[in-house]
Every structure is written in structure tokens, then in C-alpha cells.
Design a protein around this nucleic acid. Structure first.
Lengths: 340, 340
DNA sequence: CTTCTTCCTCAAAGCGCTTTGAATACACTT
DNA sequence: AAGTGTATTCAAAGCGCTTTGAGGAAGAAG
């Protein structure tokens, strides 16, 4: 059942039927009701392909699979992706994935995707401190929004959380509790979020007149092994930290294990704070002990970012969205004052 | 630059250009080369929307986000998805995701997806023992392929691994080593793969005249907590097992932790085998000790399943593919004979 | 020199929708 | 009665591709 059939069935023109269905004001309410009823009755669904051709819009948003894969980073990605897909569906958009594979240049993927006009807009995730993609997409004329931020001269749409403020607050909490040697176990330093977190960490130390010790600052993939390895290194060092600040719960789990290896109790003998992206099956409150965290649900960010992108597509003239979400510091039971 | 422009540029008709580009035999080799060169030169990309409208094919494969989410299950999903996206790209297809959310019936999602003709075929993952989706898609006339199997009267396309054989072999290995009390920590029993694994487990025991003890058979999500909880329960029981067989490496990690809790060494004091889906960042060989596994790369399955589905779409008359991959039993260092 | 093939190329007809510009009908003004 | 809006509806022209049915050119066969 296509539009023409439906129209002739109703004794109306395609124009009128199309307008009735799409909510244009030129159609009388009576006609609209009649049309809608008939459409329902016959199970009419407009052909996505035809609409796309006619409007030039694909009704599809694109996302590129992260090039660098690592287990718990993937978990963040999928939670974010889930949020995106969910709100895209609500807004009538599809989400398609492409993949930057092996050595094949990521740029080629983006170019190809853009040129075949398969997507109306793109979502960039995990931006690097210096990331070529915004400029690339700009030059290709493809609307996009970044989850996170990056250094760029030009304005671009983004949604980010206040990583710097979050880690500044967390560090401040630790310092105010009396901690002086605080270890930061961060994400990979090429990522902007990690740079921001380190900056917040340094801000707080500087504000309290503490010189950051480079030994105490490290980074790596967002998984348990990173936390374990770095924590062991530090616990076995000459002047071990009294507090750990981690970029993910998984890293915190590694720190916890390292502490156990050294007969220490994380959250009691040592303070432990982690950033919590609110993954479905990894709850800071179920940690032993319940973990003090900086928290911000990454799934919500996915939902919101699609809303913002779709709004951009619907009204390209509006100002580029630039949201920075505050991050809650949730104090639970893992942040004692340092042992004397 | 569209087809008409390109054609007039070349002094050819659209027909000829289209055929040259799409590899039809009616075009002289010389013309084809000329056309291709010009297309490259001008960066011509056919409009996906127009092609879709003209051919009635969307060039898109659909996948539904798993309704039930759990961390390491998600990891399997994303590894599989990555494989799918990768080979879809090679074959010129997009992959779009939909999501079965909350209480909204999964069926509605499938119906909607099918009716708007956004996808040419669908990939079903994580089939249940009794799963309504194959019959549903069949009745809707949507081509699909199942990753795994399910009980269904009708024939359907699938790619599965030999879960039953794998667990039969693993169990046999343990029995032949002298183990008599073997615990199975499986996936959720509603999933077909879990049922198959249990069947294989029982096969091997039966073949050796051992009556399976229901106490030793349990299941749950594919994560560390499941392995830990079940192993603790069993280790603390009256007649603890001497060997564990797990459905995932994550579960095996939990078993290992439970053993440590009880001052036992998994892989030395107790035998431990797990199924290994070959996730990027979770290597059985890096386990302590290196784990004996039944292994089958789930990413490869994703790649292959898309090949099969695309082949089905290109030639709907061919027989439905039905591949069952053998699973390697890789003996490493975690399967000692039982202690006397 | 025709007539047939074989090869290559073409014009034109869709695919199913949106959107433009015009037409009709009707109620009000003047 | 003619003129002016206003509210509805319509026919037709695309969107950019694929594909059908035909036509022209060149070489082979009669």
C-alpha cells in the first residue's frame, strides 16, 4: 500500500494525503482524520527510501566504531550507544555504525560515509586532545556533535561533562581530608577527557599549595589491569600515596585488588575515589566498600546528544549547542582521612 | 555530481554509465574504464537514497540491541557487532541498530522495523531456547539469520558454534583426568547456547556412567560475580567439586577469586575450564594460570554471519545457510587431575 | 549487396514520496 | 453583482537512480 493507492482509495490527491499525514496546516481537520483512519486501517507506512530521496534527508545518524578497542572502554561505548539509539528511535532516526579498521585511515571512512550521503549527521565519540575529525567533517559540510571536547579553533557542537571540575572537587575533598600524596590513575592521556581530569587534579593541588609528583600521575586503558598494575607500582614505591583517584570503576577494582595483594584495605587504609559512568552492571554502591565517586550517567549523555544533533538538523540556523554537564561528587564510604 | 551530470560530461547516457559502474557485461571495457576514471576524478558517489528507491533494497542490515543488558554479555555483543559492521562495510551494507526498551514489546520493534522497509535483512542474536522471533520475522517476510539456534519447526538460517560438542569434549577431558564431581557454571538457562552446553556436559557424564548432580549445575549472567558466587557456594558445600567448567572467562575469573578466598589455587588444586569467545582484551592465555578453554572467536562469527545474510539477500532461492562451527578445545595449564 | 548476429548504447519509464504553483469553492465585502 | 480573501484541494514536477525495450554500428554469413 503506497501513497498513490491510499490517495485514490480515499478519492484524494497524493498531496493532500501526504500533508494530512505529515501534519501540515492546509488540510481540514475532518480530512486529516479520515486520512489517518484509512492509513491505520490499511497499515500504510511511507517508504523510507522514497521520502529520503524526495527530502534529501536520510533520517539516519552515523557513528564510527572506536578504532581503539579495549574491553571496558567498549562498555562505556555501548552504554553511550544504547542511549543514542534509544533517543534516536524516539525522534524517528536510525543509527548506523561504521568502523575504522586496522590501518585504514579513519579519514577515509568519514569521507566515504559523508559522500554517499547515507547519514544526516554524525556523532563523534572519544575525542582526542588534538582531533582532526571536527575540522574534517566541517570541511565536508557534515553536521556533527562531539561527545566530549577537543581543541579546535572553530566552534563546534558538543556535549561534555565537567571532567575538570569533577576531578578538582574530588582532589579537593582528599586534600581537605588531609591527604598529601594522592595518586591519579587516569585514562589514556591522548584523550581530552583525561587531560581535563588531570588539569582538575592539578588545579586542586595547586590551590592548596601542593606540588604534583609526576610519579603519582599515570594513565592507561579503562580496565582493571591498569588500576592493578599502577597501584602495585605505587604501593611498592618508597613513598606510597595515601589516596587514589581513578578514572573508572574498573580501574578502582584493580586498585582494590592491588591493595589486597599488599594486605591493605582500599577505602579504609587508603582513600579511593573513582569516576562512575553509571554502567548498568557496575555499581559504585555495590563496591566493597561503597565507593566515593564523581558520577555522570553516560547513557543519559547519549540520549541527550542525539536530541541536540537532531535539533541542529531540523534548524541549522540555530546556535551550535555546547553543553557541559556538572558532575556530582557522591561521597560514600571509601574516603577516610590518611592514617598517621 | 550526480549520474546525469556525469553522463552528460562523458557524452554517454545514464544507462551506460550506470551499467559501467555496476559491472554489467553490456558495456565495453574501454567505456567502463573511461567511466570509472571520470567517476573517480569527480568524486562521484551514487546517492544511496535514489538507489534504494529504484532497487527496493535498502542496503542496510538491522540488529536489535539485546533487551537484557549485562556487562560482559554486552562485551560479547559488541565484539560480535564489530565483526558484523566490519564485514557489512566490505559488502557495501550498513548496519543499523534498534532497541527493545523497557516494557515496550520486542515484537512491536520488529514489526515497525520491518514495515518501514528500512532494512533488507536482520540478524538475531542471543536466541532463547524457545524464541518467537524467527516465526515472527518469517511471517513478516523479512529475511534473517540467527546467531545461534533455537527450537523451531521451520527451517531458518543460522550460524552457531558447536556448544554441545565443545562442552561434551571439555567434560570428557575432565572425566578422563579422573574428575567425578564437576561443576558447570553456565549462562542463563533460557538461552539456547546454555541449554546446549548443559546437554553436552550431561552427554559426557552419561557416556562415562556418572550421574549428574543437580547441585553442581548452575547458571547466571556472564560475569565475574556469577562465577564467584556459585564457586563459593560449591566450595563451601559438603562435597565440593574438583573441577569447574565455566561458560565464560569472566565467570572463570570469579571462580578463581572464590578459590583464593578459600586458599585454593584454581588450575592447580582444582581444575578449571572455560569457554573463550576471544574478546580483544580478555585472553585465556594471560590468565593465571593459562586457562584450558573451548574457544571460538565471536568476532569471526559476526563477520561470517553477515556474509551469509548478504548471500541470502543476493540470491533468495539458495538453500538457507546452516553452519555449525566446531569449537577447539585448547588445553593449557589449568586442568590437573583431581587431588586424592 | 543483403540479412543476421553481436556488441554497445540510448531514451524513457518507473520507484514512492515531497513540494510548488495553481485552481476551486465558499464566504464576505463593497 | 462584482471583487476580495480564505480555506481546501489538486496536478505535475522533481529527487537520482535502475531497468526495460529498442536502436544503431560493425562484422559475419548468405
Amino acid at each position: 500500500m503506497n501513497l498513490r493507492d491510499l490517495a485514490s482509495h480515499l478519492g484524494l490527491s497524493q498531496t493532500t494525503v501526504s500533508r494530512a499525514l505529515n501534519g501540515f496546516p492546509e488540510v481540514s481537520e475532518e480530512t486529516r482524520l479520515r486520512v489517518k483512519a484509512a492509513a491505520d486501517l490499511h497499515g500504510y507506512r511511507p517508504s523510507a527510501a522514497a521520502r529520503r530521496l524526495a527530502t534529501g534527508q536520510s533520517g539516519t545518524l552515523g557513528m564510527i566504531f572506536p578504532g581503539e578497542r579495549n574491553m571496558l572502554g567498549d562498555l562505556l561505548f555501548i552504554e553511550f550507544l544504547g542511549g543514542c539509539v534509544e533517543s534516536a528511535a524516539d525522534l524517528g532516526y536510525d543509527v548506523t555504525l561504521a568502523m575504522a579498521r586496522g590501518q585504514q585511515s579513519e579519514e577515509a571512512i568519514y569521507r566515504r560515509t559523508v559522500r554517499s550521503a547515507r547519514v544526516d549527521g554524525m556523532i563523534l565519540s572519544s575525542p582526542l586532545v588534538t582531533d582532526a575529525r571536527p575540522a574534517l567533517l566541517d570541511s565536508l559540510g557534515m553536521p556533527f556533535i562531539v561527545h566530549g571536547r577537543t581543541s579546535s579553533d572553530k566552534a563546534y557542537a558538543f556535549l561534555d561533562i565537567d571532567n575538570r571540575g569533577a576531578f578538582e572537587a574530588a582532589t579537593r575533598l582528599l586534600v581537605d581530608l588531609g591527604h598529601r600524596r594522592i595518586a591519579l590513575i587516569n585514562g589514556d592521556s591522548r584523550y581530552n577527557f583525561a587531560a581535563d581530569r588531570e588539569a582538575g587534579f592539578r588545579d586542586a593541588l595547586r590551590a592548596r599549595g601542593i606540588a604534583p609528583d609526576p610519579v603519582l600521575i599515570s594513565g592507561g586503558p579503562m580496565h582493571e589491569g591498569t588500576g592493578h598494575a599502577q597501584a602495585l607500582r605505587l604501593l611498592d614505591s618508597e613513598d606510597p600515596p595515601t589516596a587514589f583517584l581513578c578514572s573508572s570503576l574498573a580501574q578502582a577494582a584493580g586498585v582494590r585488588r592491588a591493595c589486597l595483594d599488599r594486605s591493605l584495605r582500599a577505602g579504609q587504609d587508603l582513600a579511593l575515589i573513582a569516576h562512575d559512568d553509571r554502567l548498568q552492571e557496575m555499581r559504585a554502591e555495590a563496591f566493597d566498600p561503597p565507593l566515593t565517586t564523581t558520577q555522570s550517567p553516560i547513557g543519559d549523555a547519549g540520549r541527550r546528544i542525539v536530541e541536540l544533533l537532531v535539533a541542529m538538523l531540523r534548524d541549522p540556523k540555530q546556535a551550535l549547542p555546547a553543553e557541559v554537564w556538572p558532575v556530582d561528587l557522591v561521597v560514600r564510604n571509601s574516603t577516610p582521612a590518611p592514617k598517621r
